[in-house]
Each structure stands twice: as C-alpha cells, then as structure tokens.
Amino acid sequence: MLVVNIEQAGYPGDTAILEDIHFSVKPGELVGLIGPNGAGKSTAVKSILGILNNFKGNVEVSNYSYVPERPIFYERATLWEHIDFLQAILQVHEKEFMKRAEELLEIFQLTDVIHHYPDSFSKGMQQKVMLILAFLRKPDLYIIDEPFMGLDPRATKILLNLLEEEKKNGAGVLMSTHVLDTAEKRCDRFVLLSNGRLIVKGSLSDIQDKSGLSGGTLFDCFDKLMEGES
C-alpha cells in the first residue's frame, strides 16, 4: 500500500525538516501519524504526495485518496458538480457511482445542499464534502490529514465506521491526527515524529515499551516521550 523511505525532505532555503523517516502502511491497517506541532507530519504527507522539490528518498504508493486538513474546492462549482466531475474523471459506472454518492450524502446529512457551493459551507460541512469525495474514489489507500477538525461527534463516528469498512475491504489508511484517544482506539500502528525525526513506530505496546509506561495510554506515552525531546 505505502512504503516511505525519506532520507531528507524540506523546503527551498531551509535545512532539512525531515531526516531518516521510514515506515509503511499495509493492506487492511490504519496507521496513525502523530507528533507535536512542528514535528514534520505535514512535510511527511507532502513527501508522500510527491509535491516537495527538496526531497531525497523513495516513496512507493498505491492508488490513493487524499483528504487535506484544509478543504479545497473548485470555484463556482456546486457540491453535486464536484461529484459529477469526479465521476467523469474516474470513468467508472455512472449508475453505481451516483448511487454511492447519494448514500454518502444522506449519511453525512448533505442531501439538502447538493446544489449549493461548498465554499459557503461551514468548516464541518466542507470536511464532510472532502470525505465523501475520498470515499467515492474507492482507492487502495487513504491519506487523511487531521480528519476530525470541525466534525461533530456523529460525523466523527460515521467517518470511523466508514474507515473500518474500507479496512475490511483491504484498504490501508494513513491518518495524521492530534486526537490521541481516538487514535489509540482505532489505529493498528503508530508513527511518532518529533523535530523531524522518527521517535518510535509500532503498536501501542511498542510505544509503551519505548516510553517505559507499561499499560499506559497513548496520551501518557506520548507525553513521556516528548519530555525526552524537550
């Protein structure tokens, strides 16, 4: 699904933000990319997407859907026009695609605004639109950056259930998030970054061993490991 080998990555005029970052996402698993602000999570995601010029390393990535932290839309295009355009690009069976679109619109409670412009929506509604478009692609891999920002509890539960369904169908998920309690319950493995370096990767038990907190929560382990980085 995803194999990431970053030797160095950064931006023009800056020293390398990331160094020696190596991890993978396997079929049917959800990997949480976690770390404090400025840890390099966004740079890691941009490296995976191939949009950094200052990059040294190698990334092997399957067909993917990307949900950015800040939603991006086409100007003067309604929600339904976004969906219709995606169907045309993917060149998939129209009837099945539109049926799935209608199901997702109903699940996320956006049916009444299908002919409205997403740039007029609230942050939570815009996030729902991005999620609908991502799930309509039916990719091998989901790359999701801070998906819970702006979502109400019901929408968060819907998202998590949909991701679980996609995992059961063999899709992999890389999710960058600050919501550690949810990550602990849902992620199969974790990649913890700090100051552009890989601190630890693996299961919760691996992180507990690394932090020296047997049985500790992900939040407590994270806090303990960050003490060593300060």
Rank of each mutant, 00 (worst) to 15 (best):
P139E: 14
G150D: 08
D140A: 06
I143Y: 02
Q91L: 13
Y117I: 09
K128E: 08
I114H: 04
I132F: 10
I143E: 08
Y117V: 05
M130K: 12
K99M: 09
E146Q: 13
A88L: 10
K128D: 10
E96S: 15
A134M: 00
E146P: 04
I132H: 12
L86S: 08
D145C: 11
A101L: 04
E146K: 02
R100P: 02
F85S: 07
L136K: 07
D84T: 04
L90C: 04
I114N: 09
I89V: 15
Q126V: 04
W80T: 01
Q87F: 00
T111K: 06
E94D: 12
D84E: 07
L136E: 10
D145A: 14
F97C: 09
E146L: 07
P147Q: 15
V113K: 14
G150H: 04
G124V: 07
D112F: 01
I89P: 04
V113R: 13
K138L: 10
F108S: 15
L90D: 01
M98Y: 03
D119T: 14
Y117S: 08
P139V: 05
K138I: 09
Q91R: 15
F135T: 03
D140R: 00
Q126P: 01
W80E: 07
R100Q: 07
F135G: 00
W80G: 03
F135Q: 03
L86D: 11
Y142E: 12
L133F: 05
R100E: 14
F135R: 02
M125L: 05
H115V: 02
K123L: 11
F97R: 10
P139I: 14
F97Y: 12
P147M: 15
L141N: 08
I132C: 13
I107F: 06
D112R: 05
H93G: 14
S122H: 04
M98D: 12
A101H: 03
F135D: 03
I107Q: 09
M98I: 15
E106C: 08
P147R: 15
L141A: 04
